[in-house]
Simulated scan of single mutants.
Amino acid sequence: MSRLPKPFTFCVAIALASVVNMSPVQADDTQTISIMVGGISKFIYLPVKLADQLGYFKDEKLHFELLSQPSGVDAENELLAGAVQAVAGAYDHTIDLQSKGKEVQSIATFLQVPGEVEVVAKGSLMKSMADATGKTFGVTGLGSSTDFLTRYIALKSGVTSRQYSTLPVGADNSFIAAVAQHRIDAGMTTEPTVSRLLETGDASVLVDMRTVEGTKKALGGIYPFTGLYVDARWLARHKTQAAGLARAIARTMAYIHTHSAEDIADKMPKDYYGGNKALYVQALKATMSMYTPDGRMPAGGPENVLNVLSTINPAIKGKQIDLSRTYTNEFIVATKAP
Results as ranks from 00 to 15, higher is better:
Ala13Met: 14
Glu213Trp: 04
Asp96His: 10
Leu219Met: 01
Ile316Thr: 00
Gln282Tyr: 07
Ile256Tyr: 01
Asp52His: 05
Thr335Asp: 11
Ala83Cys: 11
Gly141Lys: 05
Asn307Glu: 11
Thr140Ala: 08
Leu219Asp: 05
Ile321Ala: 11
Ala154Glu: 03
Val37Pro: 10
Pro224Thr: 07
Asp322Ile: 00
Asn276Pro: 08
Met22Ile: 04
Thr240Ser: 15
Val117Asn: 09
Gly138Lys: 09
Ala154Trp: 02
Asn304Glu: 12
Thr189Glu: 13
Ile35Ser: 15
Gly295Met: 02
Lys319Ser: 15
Ile222Tyr: 00
Ile222Lys: 11
Asn304Thr: 03
Val119Ala: 05
Thr287Leu: 04
Thr258Phe: 03
Thr215Glu: 07
Arg162His: 15
Tyr56Pro: 10
Ser68Asp: 09
Val230Cys: 00
Asp271Thr: 06
Ala283Ile: 05
Ile35His: 12
Ile14Arg: 12
Glu103Thr: 11
Val207Arg: 07
Asp172Ile: 11
Phe137Ala: 06
Phe64Arg: 15
Asp266Glu: 10
Leu111Asp: 05
Ile249Asn: 03
Ala254Val: 02
Leu125Gly: 15
Ile40Gln: 13
Arg210Leu: 12
Val305Met: 04
Gly101Val: 02
Val212Trp: 03
Thr335Pro: 05
Val308Ala: 07
Glu65Ala: 13
Lys239Gln: 14
Lys270Tyr: 04
Asn307Leu: 11
Ala132Cys: 08
Val305Lys: 01
Met288Tyr: 02
Lys239Glu: 13
Met290Ala: 09
Pro302Arg: 03
Gly141Tyr: 06
Leu279Glu: 09
Val308Phe: 00
Gln31Arg: 13
Val117Arg: 06
His63Lys: 14
Ile249Leu: 04
Ser144Asn: 03
Leu235His: 00
Leu46Gln: 14
Ala243Gln: 14
Gln69Glu: 14
Ser41Asp: 08
Asp208Ser: 10
Met126Thr: 03
Phe10Ile: 14
Ser99Leu: 00
Gly227Ala: 08
Lys216Ala: 06
Val179Phe: 02
Asn329Thr: 04
Tyr229Asp: 10
Ala13Glu: 15
Leu125Phe: 14
Asp231Tyr: 01
